[in-house]
């Protein structure tokens, strides 16, 4: 799943880093992801996994690393199943 999430970062031109060089735990905001870029990623993830993040999960922490995002997606897809 992490690789699927990673692939969503590849086409985003607003990100100043190469996602392939980031570890799963690396902080994406520290790497230069803006708030607006994180919104674009959020929307792309919702489309890819056919999920909707509830409001309480729309936080900086949820999108702080590839691992955090994967945890959130796992939680939502498990709940939906």
């Amino acid at each position: 799943m992490i690789d699927q999430i990673r692939s969503l970062f590849v086409g985003n031109e607003t990100l100043p880093f190469d996602v392939e060089k980031l570890a799963d735990q690396d902080n994406l905001y520290d790497a230069g992801m803006t708030s607006f870029a994180s919104v674009q990623i959020m929307l792309a993830i919702e489309e890819k996994f056919d999920i909707e993040f509830p409001e309480e999960m729309l936080t900086r922490r949820t999108f702080a690393s590839l691992a955090n995002i994967a945890d959130a997606v796992t939680k939502l897809t498990t709940e939906a199943a």
Binding site: S35, F36, S38, V39, Q40, M42, L43, F53, E55, L58, T59, R60, R61, F63
Partner: peptide, 13 residues
Amino acid sequence: RGGKMMANNQRDQ
């Protein structure tokens, strides 16, 4: 909805 996240980010920081 993306704005909710922007708002949360703004508050967190």
